[in-house]
Amino acid sequence: MRIKKLKLVGFKSFVEPAELRIESGLTGIVGPNGCGKSNLLEAIRWVMGESSAKSMRGAGMEDVIFAGTASRPPRDFAEVTILAERSDDTADSDSDEELEVTRRIERGAGSAYRSNGRDV
């Protein structure tokens, strides 16, 4: 299983839609303190099913939703999508399978999952 892409909307510091493509080879994430490096890693954990708010550096799971700033209002939801591919080394490249998992949380409504576009 290989992660190909991560899409975030309203997740922690990623208020605007953001997309991280993970290409073959070594991928590094660098930047100054407070730019969101840890939030990217937490987004991967969260979309894959993390249920502990404490391990997400929050008091409650809704703390993953962008809380707002002096110049930006808070968001009502957060959504993370991960696109992964499973490649069987013994088969043709045509037999690769992609899996897209989305987790969305809304204030006061909890979170829900979609797998390849279907509610699960």
Rank of each mutant, 00 (worst) to 15 (best):
R75Y: 05
L6E: 04
S93G: 12
L99N: 05
G58W: 07
R118N: 00
L99Q: 08
D119A: 13
D94R: 13
S52K: 03
M48R: 10
V101P: 13
K5Y: 07
T27A: 05
E16P: 01
E50I: 06
E100A: 12
D94Q: 08
R104T: 09
D76R: 11
G49F: 01
L26Y: 09
E97D: 12
S115Y: 13
D76G: 15
E42H: 08
L6D: 05
V9H: 09
A67F: 04
V120E: 05
K7T: 03
A78D: 06
S95A: 10
R21D: 09
E97M: 13
F77K: 02
L20C: 07
P74A: 11
L26W: 10
K54A: 09
T69E: 15
G68T: 02
W46A: 06
N39C: 03
P73K: 12
P74K: 07
L41F: 14
G31L: 12
G108C: 15
L83P: 00
G10E: 11
N39K: 04
A109M: 07
D63H: 00
R107H: 10
E85F: 15
F11T: 00
I44W: 10
G58R: 03
E79R: 09
G117Q: 00
R72Q: 08
L26Q: 03
F14S: 00
S71E: 15
L99T: 09
S71Q: 15
G10V: 10
A78Y: 05
A91H: 10
A59E: 15
P32Q: 10
R57P: 06
D96F: 14
G34Q: 02
N33S: 11
Y113L: 15
A53D: 01
G28P: 00
P74H: 09
V80W: 05
R72I: 05
E23H: 04
E16L: 13
G58I: 04
E79Y: 01
M1H: 11
R72A: 08
G25Y: 07
E23S: 07
F77H: 03
A112I: 02
P32L: 11
G25K: 05
E50P: 03
R86N: 09
V47P: 01
I22P: 01
T90G: 08
V120M: 10
W46N: 04
R21Y: 06
K54R: 10
E19I: 02
E62Y: 04
I22V: 13
T27E: 00
K37P: 06
A59Y: 14
S93A: 15
P32V: 07
V120R: 05
I82E: 01
D96R: 15
S13N: 13
G49T: 00
M56A: 09
R114V: 00
D89Y: 13
